[in-house]
């Protein structure tokens, strides 16, 4: 009888291991471990055995049954796992197809440059001041110490819309209005649009400029130099130095022209800097005492500096834009690059 049991068990094991469907496995389960199963049949035959052998054989049958139940569970898990894997396999996809993106527009490079300039100066304690595009001659020229017969006032240089009403040629107008309305200490930048009667490859009749003005007790020429250096480094990187050299502006005394190291060749000389290694950035200087006097600020108590930079030029250098006309053509293939 033992041999018979052995045979049945071997056959059962074989059948269970080969089974690949849950339904068939259920049938096997009832055949081998159910009430009317083969193994229970063995139990019924216990009576035919020598009473001494009965407990051992009974135990053997029970152990065999337990082992089969365990095997059935194992096989059930194996089949389920296989079915799960099969189902997932059919859900495989092409991972290289494009993902869903929101359409993204773009900011104009002049806006990008202006934002960066504003953020740098705000972090250095400056307020951003804004003003009118259409101004009078006083705020654009007189208050800035520009002589009555200065060529900049000519129709060939400046757009006029009325007798002494014009399109501002610089945002210094905002500096004047700020000094009219606020007492020192003053620490502002004035970004905005300016106009000059020019239209060629390197000049646009409308362009963008940022000017800075600092008025306080104890402001010096050294502060101006430091501030320009800090700004240029923050804008273009630590290796880009700036320098100032003597120049003339009616508004400032001493006046200076600002250069920065060429962003392209870092001073070696290239076609962008016309071989000089330096790029002209704008003008600067200490506010002329006469300007202070006109605005009722005592130049013996207060000193100040001012400088002006071209936003468009900064954008062109920053984003490597070769031609100013690209900025105002608004070609979508250009705009989408930013």
């Amino acid at each position: 009888m033992k041999e018979e049991l052995q045979k049945v068990i071997l056959a059962a094991r074989e059948e269970i291991m080969q089974c690949r469907s849950l339904h068939d496995l259920m049938l096997l389960k009832s055949r081998y471990t159910g009430k009317k199963s083969v193994l229970n049949g063995f139990m019924k035959k216990l009576g035919h055995l020598d009473p001494k052998e009965r407990p051992t054989f009974g135990k053997t049958v029970n152990l065999a049954k337990e082992a089969l139940v365990e095997l059935l569970t194992q096989q059930e898990n194996t089949i389920k796992e296989a079915q799960y894997n099969h189902a997932l396999a059919s859900q495989r996809i092409d991972l290289t197809m494009p993902g869903r993106r929101q359409d993204r527009g773009s900011l104009h490079p002049v806006t990008l440059a202006r934002r960066e300039i504003e953020d740098i100066f705000v972090s250095l304690g400056f307020d951003v001041a804004e003003g009118r595009d259409i101004e009078d001659e006083f705020h654009n020229f007189d208050a800035l110490n520009t002589p009555k017969d200065h060529p900049a006032r000519d129709l060939s240089d400046t757009f006029y819309v009325g007798g002494d009403v014009l399109l501002r040629t610089q945002t210094s107008t905002v500096q004047i209005r700020t000094m009219e309305n606020y007492a020192p200490p003053i620490r502002i930048i004035a970004p905005g649009r300016c106009y000059r009667n020019d239209n060629d490859a390197s000049h646009s009749p409308a362009f963008h400029q940022v000017e800075a003005l600092v008025v306080d007790k104890g402001v010096t020429f050294a502060d101006l130099k430091d501030m320009l250096n800090v700004f240029v480094k923050k804008m273009f990187g630590d290796e880009i130095r700036s320098r100032i050299r003597p120049h003339f502006f009616p508004f400032t005394e001493p006046s200076a022209e600002i250069d920065m190291l060429c962003v392209n060749c870092r001073g070696k000389g290239c076609n962008i800097c016309k071989g000089s290694g330096w790029l002209e950035m704008g003008g600067a200087g200490m506010v002329d005492p006469h300007v202070f006097e006109m605005l009722g600020i005592d130049p013996e108590i207060y000193t100040g500096y001012a400088f002006g930079l071209g936003i468009d030029r900064i954008a062109m250098l920053k984003y490597n834009i070769p031609d100013m006309r690209l900025l105002f053509e608004n070609d979508i293939r250009f705009l989408k690059q930013f």
Binding site: G105, T111, F328
Partner: peptide
């Protein structure tokens, strides 16, 4: 102003800059 510009960009619009004339 910055918020408006950013909303426009997020809606897929590109900013242009024209002269004031």
């Amino acid at each position: 102003r910055r918020m408006l510009q950013d909303i426009m960009v997020s809606y897929g619009y590109s900013e242009i800059v024209n002269w004031s004339f």
